[in-house]
Write a protein that binds this DNA or RNA. Structure first.
Lengths: 254, 254
DNA sequence: ACAATATAACATAAATAATGTTGAAAAAGT
DNA sequence: ACTTTTTCAACATTATTTATGTTATATTGT
């Protein structure tokens, strides 16, 4: 096991358990305490955790946990599965809108398989990786850079969208409750809504663990989306209402 | 001397002499021919030169020479000097517009000294480096990514600019002849003009070796700029007309 | 004050990158 | 055609960098 795997594993433990013990980690990974110290220092410096005497914690609920760098570490298998399912909706030559978020970043990379494409995005990770890919016309949306979501937002973004038209928009969301999707941030909601307006078709990407959660702002009714892709069935109680409303979920499997 | 220095030196030689000899390079840097082969392969792969039997060349005039990656290698001393001179025009708290080009990228980095600032740019290099700098509010302009100029252009860019207002715009240009600045690319000219309109003051940054050159499109009359910064005096014949018109150059010196 | 933890500084080990060597294949010159 | 030169691939060697461990000293919590 090498360094990055170990750090990833530490983050996984931390996300599960909210706290980890230094001695325990040294033991578990069979390395010296000093090495774990250094791992935790790095991860703390990257803003992923907080060191405390004898170990480290995530501060519940707050910025830490919702930071894009943590989300990028989580569930990358599920994200790849969903990205592959989303690929079925895309044909070469299309214009594709991609929103912020690490799910979207995965999707961006997967889309190289469908070149040539025009990609429109406010997602900094997508802009970085797709910039030099031949066969991809990349249109950045601009806006004020937001480090928390690693993307660009604001009037510049929304206004740029009002002048563009795409074949399909992929929208991701951290929370679905009942028949609505939610997001905690105002500016993010506005950018996603502008994208939905600018696209002929819309597709929602949502991790199955996010069903049954809500957040401050309503993003959209599920019925607004032409398709909804998830990586597994939501809990029966969450599913009931969705089925009753006649909304169909595409469950991406291995 | 280490690898990157050697490669940089090869590019310098190449820019001067248009062609280099493989045996000669191996000799000069006291390394094996194989090492030079590998250097040239790398540089060719990066699009910076063309390998020919026994050495390498730059293809005159064409894309090769005008590629931003080559320009970024040239004259970085002069660029730093000019950037430092430009700093005098900026105070903390201002909103600064930065255009495409490697000169502008240098300026971007230098501007950290004047934080807090709002930076508006279509320059991918600036977006990359300034994104995570605390005290810098970064507004990306968006647009279609252009790999040749490593920046974003088009209606999205121009339209975003029409809705923004900056204290000062720094404009760079590859050619000044008579009393006008020029640029070879249409879309680039439009973005620069939009920036000039969006800013209260404008400053032209121009390498002294670029006086006496012209290009397809007129970018602006020199008289339109509030200040013009260069790294050395232009040749007397070029200078005469400028002086006669009463235009003042700021010559950045060590 | 004392035990537990943290950190700094240096030492060692592992991994990676850079360069060199050789010999066969390809290209150019005659 | 054949000789010479150059290129290139494969492997060997050497440097350089990165990761980890060790030890000694400081810091913290009780």
């Amino acid at each position: 096991m090498k360094r990055e795997e170990r750090r990833q594993a530490i983050m996984d433990l931390l996300v599960q358990a909210r706290a980890v013990d230094l001695d325990d980690l040294a033991d578990r990974f069979a390395v010296s305490k000093m090495t774990i110290h250094r791992d935790l220092d790095e991860l703390e410096h990257a803003g992923l955790l907080r060191k405390v005497r004898g170990g480290a914690t995530i501060e519940a609920g707050t910025q830490f946990e919702s930071d894009f760098r943590i989300r990028a570490l989580q569930d990358s298998v599920a994200k790849d599965r969903m990205a592959r399912a989303a690929l079925d909706l895309v044909e070469p030559g299309m214009t594709v809108l991609i929103n912020d978020g690490s799910m979207a970043a995965h999707l961006g990379e997967a889309l190289t398989a469908k070149r040539p494409l025009t990609l429109i995005t406010n997602n900094a990770a997508v802009i970085d990786t797709m910039r030099d890919v031949p066969g991809i016309t990349l249109i950045a949306l601009g806006g004020i850079f937001n480090a928390k979501f690693n993307a660009f937002f604001g009037v510049v973004t929304e206004h740029a969208l009002s002048r563009l038209r795409a074949d399909i928009a992929f929208i991701s969301s951290p929370a679905v409750a009942g028949l609505q999707a939610f997001h905690m941030d105002d500016a993010v909601v506005r950018s996603k809504r502008s994208m939905m307006t600018a696209a002929a078709k819309t597709c929602l990407l949502i991790n199955h663990s996010r069903f049954g959660r809500s957040a401050l702002h309503v993003l959209a009714d599920l019925a607004e989306f032409d398709s909804i892709i998830t990586d597994g069935a939501p809990a029966p109680e969450d599913r009931a209402a969705i089925d009753r409303a006649g909304i169909r979920l595409t469950i991406a499997k291995e």
